[in-house]
Protein backbone atom coordinates (compact mmCIF):
# COMPACT_ATOMS: atom_id res chain seq x y z
CA UNK A 1 0.00 0.00 0.00
CA UNK A 2 1.40 3.37 -1.09
CA UNK A 3 0.16 6.36 0.88
CA UNK A 4 1.12 9.93 0.03
CA UNK A 5 0.02 12.47 2.58
CA UNK A 6 0.12 16.28 2.35
CA UNK A 7 3.17 16.23 0.09
CA UNK A 8 4.60 19.62 -0.79
CA UNK A 9 7.49 20.25 -3.16
CA UNK A 10 9.17 23.56 -3.98
CA UNK A 11 12.00 24.64 -6.25
CA UNK A 12 13.45 27.57 -4.38
CA UNK A 13 10.58 29.83 -3.47
CA UNK A 14 8.28 28.44 -6.18
CA UNK A 15 5.90 25.79 -4.93
CA UNK A 16 5.40 23.16 -7.63
CA UNK A 17 3.27 20.67 -5.70
CA UNK A 18 1.01 21.53 -2.80
CA UNK A 19 -0.83 19.33 -0.36
CA UNK A 20 -0.98 16.15 -2.42
CA UNK A 21 -2.61 13.17 -0.69
CA UNK A 22 -3.17 9.94 -2.57
CA UNK A 23 -3.47 6.25 -1.91
CA UNK A 24 -2.74 3.21 -4.07
CA UNK A 25 -3.58 -0.31 -2.92
CA UNK A 26 -1.77 -3.46 -3.99
CA UNK A 27 -2.96 -4.65 -7.40
CA UNK A 28 -4.23 -1.19 -8.26
CA UNK A 29 -3.07 1.25 -10.96
CA UNK A 30 -3.24 4.98 -10.29
CA UNK A 31 -2.79 7.25 -13.30
CA UNK A 32 -1.54 10.82 -12.84
CA UNK A 33 -2.95 13.13 -15.47
CA UNK A 34 -2.87 16.86 -16.08
CA UNK A 35 -1.66 19.42 -18.57
CA UNK A 36 2.05 19.94 -19.26
CA UNK A 37 3.78 21.47 -16.27
CA UNK A 38 1.06 20.37 -13.84
CA UNK A 39 3.62 18.48 -11.75
CA UNK A 40 3.13 14.83 -12.79
CA UNK A 41 6.81 14.10 -13.27
CA UNK A 42 7.70 16.10 -10.17
CA UNK A 43 5.28 13.99 -8.15
CA UNK A 44 6.84 10.77 -9.45
CA UNK A 45 10.28 12.11 -8.59
CA UNK A 46 9.23 13.31 -5.16
CA UNK A 47 7.65 9.96 -4.31
CA UNK A 48 10.77 8.13 -5.54
CA UNK A 49 12.92 10.38 -3.38
CA UNK A 50 15.02 11.96 -6.14
CA UNK A 51 13.38 15.35 -5.56
CA UNK A 52 13.21 16.26 -1.89
CA UNK A 53 9.82 17.19 -0.45
CA UNK A 54 9.43 20.29 1.72
CA UNK A 55 6.84 18.60 3.87
CA UNK A 56 4.50 15.64 3.86
CA UNK A 57 5.11 11.94 3.84
CA UNK A 58 5.38 8.98 1.50
CA UNK A 59 4.54 5.76 3.29
CA UNK A 60 4.85 2.23 1.92
CA UNK A 61 3.40 -0.56 4.06
CA UNK A 62 3.66 1.59 7.16
CA UNK A 63 7.27 2.67 6.48
CA UNK A 64 8.04 6.35 6.03
CA UNK A 65 10.40 6.50 3.05
CA UNK A 66 12.21 9.57 4.35
CA UNK A 67 13.66 7.38 7.11
CA UNK A 68 15.16 4.94 4.60
CA UNK A 69 18.57 5.02 2.95
CA UNK A 70 18.87 5.14 -0.83
CA UNK A 71 19.49 1.40 -0.86
CA UNK A 72 16.61 0.51 1.44
CA UNK A 73 14.27 2.70 -0.57
CA UNK A 74 15.22 0.90 -3.78
CA UNK A 75 13.94 -2.34 -2.22
CA UNK A 76 10.54 -0.78 -1.57
CA UNK A 77 9.94 1.32 -4.63
CA UNK A 78 11.15 0.99 -8.25
CA UNK A 79 10.91 3.54 -11.05
CA UNK A 80 10.49 3.02 -14.79
CA UNK A 81 11.85 6.20 -16.42
CA UNK A 82 10.54 7.91 -19.54
CA UNK A 83 11.25 6.10 -22.78
CA UNK A 84 14.40 7.35 -24.43
CA UNK A 85 17.20 6.11 -26.64
CA UNK A 86 19.49 3.92 -24.55
CA UNK A 87 23.16 4.05 -25.47
CA UNK A 88 26.05 1.91 -24.33
CA UNK A 89 26.74 -1.68 -25.09
CA UNK A 90 25.38 -3.46 -22.03
CA UNK A 91 23.45 -6.61 -22.70
CA UNK A 92 19.79 -6.82 -21.70
CA UNK A 93 20.72 -9.22 -18.92
CA UNK A 94 23.43 -6.89 -17.56
CA UNK A 95 21.05 -3.93 -17.62
CA UNK A 96 18.31 -5.84 -15.79
CA UNK A 97 20.85 -7.13 -13.28
CA UNK A 98 21.62 -3.52 -12.36
CA UNK A 99 18.12 -3.41 -10.90
CA UNK A 100 19.53 -5.71 -8.20
CA UNK A 101 21.99 -3.08 -6.99
CA UNK A 102 20.14 -2.61 -3.73
CA UNK A 103 20.59 -6.29 -2.88
CA UNK A 104 24.18 -6.66 -3.98
CA UNK A 105 27.33 -6.15 -2.00
CA UNK A 106 29.60 -3.28 -2.77
CA UNK A 107 31.48 -5.31 -5.32
CA UNK A 108 28.39 -6.03 -7.35
CA UNK A 109 28.74 -9.78 -7.12
CA UNK A 110 25.48 -11.52 -8.08
CA UNK A 111 23.91 -14.09 -5.78
CA UNK A 112 21.64 -16.93 -6.87
CA UNK A 113 18.67 -14.87 -5.66
CA UNK A 114 19.76 -12.00 -7.94
CA UNK A 115 19.90 -14.31 -10.95
CA UNK A 116 16.49 -15.76 -10.07
CA UNK A 117 14.98 -12.26 -9.89
CA UNK A 118 16.55 -11.31 -13.22
CA UNK A 119 15.30 -14.46 -14.92
CA UNK A 120 11.81 -13.84 -13.58
CA UNK A 121 11.83 -10.21 -14.71
CA UNK A 122 13.01 -11.19 -18.19
CA UNK A 123 10.31 -13.82 -18.38
CA UNK A 124 7.58 -11.45 -17.19
CA UNK A 125 8.55 -8.90 -19.82
CA UNK A 126 9.03 -11.59 -22.51
CA UNK A 127 12.66 -10.62 -23.01
CA UNK A 128 14.30 -14.02 -22.42
CA UNK A 129 15.33 -14.40 -26.04
CA UNK A 130 16.96 -10.96 -25.95
CA UNK A 131 18.98 -11.62 -22.78
CA UNK A 132 22.38 -11.55 -24.47
CA UNK A 133 21.59 -8.84 -27.00
CA UNK A 134 23.02 -5.34 -26.62
CA UNK A 135 20.35 -2.86 -25.44
CA UNK A 136 21.53 -0.32 -28.02
CA UNK A 137 20.37 -2.66 -30.80
CA UNK A 138 16.78 -2.96 -29.55
CA UNK A 139 13.75 -1.03 -30.78
CA UNK A 140 12.19 1.70 -28.64
CA UNK A 141 9.43 -0.61 -27.42
CA UNK A 142 11.90 -3.34 -26.51
CA UNK A 143 14.16 -0.89 -24.70
CA UNK A 144 11.21 0.26 -22.64
CA UNK A 145 10.51 -3.35 -21.67
CA UNK A 146 14.15 -3.58 -20.53
CA UNK A 147 13.63 -0.58 -18.24
CA UNK A 148 10.43 -2.22 -16.93
CA UNK A 149 12.30 -5.50 -16.37
CA UNK A 150 15.05 -3.63 -14.52
CA UNK A 151 12.45 -2.11 -12.20
CA UNK A 152 10.74 -5.50 -11.69
CA UNK A 153 14.11 -7.03 -10.77
CA UNK A 154 14.12 -4.68 -7.79
CA UNK A 155 11.31 -6.89 -6.36
CA UNK A 156 9.46 -3.97 -4.79
CA UNK A 157 5.84 -3.72 -3.67
CA UNK A 158 5.49 -0.33 -5.38
CA UNK A 159 6.17 0.53 -9.02
CA UNK A 160 6.31 4.09 -10.39
CA UNK A 161 6.28 4.86 -14.11
CA UNK A 162 6.99 8.27 -15.59
CA UNK A 163 5.19 8.59 -18.91
CA UNK A 164 6.43 5.17 -19.95
CA UNK A 165 4.74 5.21 -23.34
CA UNK A 166 6.21 8.44 -24.71
CA UNK A 167 7.67 7.96 -28.18
CA UNK A 168 6.14 4.49 -28.50
CA UNK A 169 3.73 3.56 -31.26
CA UNK A 170 0.20 2.30 -30.60
CA UNK A 171 1.14 -1.38 -30.55
CA UNK A 172 3.98 -0.87 -28.08
CA UNK A 173 1.92 1.48 -25.92
CA UNK A 174 -0.84 -1.10 -25.63
CA UNK A 175 1.56 -3.98 -25.07
CA UNK A 176 3.47 -2.18 -22.36
CA UNK A 177 0.38 -1.03 -20.49
CA UNK A 178 -1.31 -4.44 -20.74
CA UNK A 179 1.84 -5.94 -19.32
CA UNK A 180 1.82 -3.48 -16.42
CA UNK A 181 -1.86 -4.25 -15.80
CA UNK A 182 -1.18 -7.98 -15.72
CA UNK A 183 1.83 -7.58 -13.41
CA UNK A 184 -0.07 -5.30 -11.06
CA UNK A 185 -2.77 -7.93 -10.65
CA UNK A 186 -0.56 -11.00 -10.49
CA UNK A 187 2.20 -9.56 -8.31
CA UNK A 188 -0.14 -7.37 -6.25
CA UNK A 189 1.96 -4.31 -7.11
CA UNK A 190 0.79 -0.83 -6.19
CA UNK A 191 1.39 1.08 -9.42
CA UNK A 192 1.45 4.83 -9.93
CA UNK A 193 2.12 6.22 -13.40
CA UNK A 194 2.15 9.57 -15.10
CA UNK A 195 0.37 9.30 -18.46
CA UNK A 196 -0.44 11.82 -21.15
CA UNK A 197 -2.94 9.97 -23.26
CA UNK A 198 -6.31 10.14 -21.52
CA UNK A 199 -7.79 7.30 -23.56
CA UNK A 200 -4.96 5.04 -22.44
CA UNK A 201 -5.67 6.18 -18.90
CA UNK A 202 -9.28 5.10 -19.02
CA UNK A 203 -8.20 1.84 -20.65
CA UNK A 204 -5.72 0.94 -17.90
CA UNK A 205 -6.26 2.85 -14.66
CA UNK A 206 -8.31 1.91 -11.62
CA UNK A 207 -7.95 5.39 -10.19
CA UNK A 208 -7.10 8.73 -11.72
CA UNK A 209 -5.52 11.77 -10.08
CA UNK A 210 -5.87 15.03 -11.98
CA UNK A 211 -3.16 17.59 -11.25
CA UNK A 212 -3.43 21.22 -12.31
CA UNK A 213 -0.76 23.78 -11.39
CA UNK A 214 0.67 21.55 -8.71
CA UNK A 215 -2.65 20.90 -7.00
CA UNK A 216 -4.74 17.78 -6.85
CA UNK A 217 -8.02 18.75 -8.55
CA UNK A 218 -9.76 15.39 -8.70
CA UNK A 219 -9.08 11.89 -7.44
CA UNK A 220 -11.36 8.98 -8.31
CA UNK A 221 -12.24 6.32 -10.86
CA UNK A 222 -11.78 7.12 -14.57
CA UNK A 223 -15.53 7.61 -14.87
CA UNK A 224 -15.47 10.12 -12.04
CA UNK A 225 -12.49 12.14 -13.24
CA UNK A 226 -12.54 11.90 -17.01
CA UNK A 227 -15.67 13.96 -17.52
CA UNK A 228 -16.17 16.60 -20.15
CA UNK A 229 -16.51 19.59 -17.83
CA UNK A 230 -13.57 18.54 -15.61
CA UNK A 231 -11.16 17.86 -18.45
CA UNK A 232 -12.24 20.90 -20.51
CA UNK A 233 -11.51 23.16 -17.57
CA UNK A 234 -8.24 21.53 -16.55
CA UNK A 235 -6.79 21.46 -20.05
CA UNK A 236 -8.49 24.68 -21.19
CA UNK A 237 -9.73 22.85 -24.26
CA UNK A 238 -13.34 21.94 -24.95
CA UNK A 239 -13.72 18.15 -25.12
CA UNK A 240 -16.52 15.67 -25.53
CA UNK A 241 -16.69 12.33 -23.88
CA UNK A 242 -18.52 9.22 -25.00
CA UNK A 243 -18.66 5.85 -23.31
CA UNK A 244 -17.01 2.80 -24.73
CA UNK A 245 -19.91 0.66 -26.04
CA UNK A 246 -18.67 -2.50 -24.28
CA UNK A 247 -16.62 -1.48 -21.23
CA UNK A 248 -18.26 1.86 -20.51
CA UNK A 249 -14.81 3.47 -20.20
CA UNK A 250 -14.81 7.14 -21.08
CA UNK A 251 -13.39 8.00 -24.51
CA UNK A 252 -12.34 11.53 -25.13
CA UNK A 253 -12.46 13.73 -28.24
CA UNK A 254 -11.35 17.30 -28.64
CA UNK A 255 -14.54 19.18 -29.53
CA UNK A 256 -13.13 20.92 -32.57
CA UNK A 257 -12.58 17.60 -34.27
CA UNK A 258 -16.17 16.52 -33.76
CA UNK A 259 -17.58 19.78 -35.11
CA UNK A 260 -15.29 19.66 -38.08
CA UNK A 261 -16.35 16.17 -39.09
CA UNK A 262 -20.04 17.09 -39.08
Amino acid sequence: MLTISSLRVAYGSRTVLRDISLEVSPGEILALIGPNGAGKTTLVRAVSGTTPAVSGQVIVNGQDLSNLSVTQRARVLAVVPQARQLGGAYSVEQAVMMGRTAYMSWLGRESEADWAAVRLALQQTRLESFARRSIAQLSGGEQQRVLLARALAQSTPVLLLDEPTNHLDLQHQTNLLSLVRKLAEEQRLAVMMALHDLNLVSFIADKVALLVNGELKRFGTPQEVIRAEVISEAYRTPVEIVSHPVTGAPIIFPQGVLNHSK
Binding site: G49, S69, V70, R75, V79
Partner: peptide, 10 residues
Protein backbone atom coordinates in the same frame (compact mmCIF):
# COMPACT_ATOMS: atom_id res chain seq x y z
CA UNK B 1 18.94 9.92 -10.93
CA UNK B 2 18.28 6.39 -12.17
CA UNK B 3 21.35 5.08 -10.34
CA UNK B 4 19.84 6.43 -7.12
CA UNK B 5 16.48 4.85 -7.91
CA UNK B 6 18.27 1.53 -8.44
CA UNK B 7 19.69 1.84 -4.95
CA UNK B 8 23.19 3.23 -5.49
CA UNK B 9 24.40 5.78 -2.94
CA UNK B 10 25.46 8.05 -5.79
Amino acid sequence: EEAKQMGLAV
